[in-house]
Design a binder for these strands. Sequence first.
DNA 1: AACTGGATCGTCT
DNA 2: GACGATCCAGTTG
Length: 195
Amino acid sequence: MRKQNAGLTKSFFARSAEEVAPDLIGCEFFIDGVGGKIVETEAYTRFDPASHSFRGPTRRNQSMFGEPGTAYVYRIYGLHWCMNFVCADASAVLLRALLPVNGIELMKARRGGVSEIQLCSGPAKLSEALGISGNLDGASLFAPPFTLRARSEQPVEILEGERIGISRATELPWRFWLADCPYTSHPKLRSKPRK
DNA sequence: AACTGGATCGTCT
DNA sequence: GACGATCCAGTTG
């Protein structure tokens, strides 16, 4: 009986994002078979001033108030897309970096031929590589085009530190990443949590 | 290696 | 009317 490579279930996401976010490190995520291993995430919760759900439901953030296991996709800075997995109580996990596994040539084509290291090393980069845009907002993660696979083995070491690119609640240690992984988004913050 | 500004627009003040 | 859960190219040290 092979338990490894099983798909993630709804109960996996039916917890608060700060619990789910570290558990997603080492899982695999694909869209139409294109994607890779999750190596960096961030958690955002309902009572977190940095979270889109902090001020209650709006048209943009309504997916964040949906069922655990829903995709929340939003546009950032007018030109990029960011992908989130909705968890319990209007919390969500932002996908920040993947280690490319499948569909590498297609991802390179979408990303303008950058090196493999830089293919998915950032939230907007991985969205471009996987072809993510606003039309996936609100979709269930348990149906096509998505594929989610649980870890096949425990990650060597998961580190945590402050989140990146926000101006509020910056002290919360809700960014999680695979230690010393070259495919994460911030070279300087790869090995040690920021002080 | 570190910092700067530009691109670009929906959302909320 | 201001401002992002960003990225990239360019400049400076």
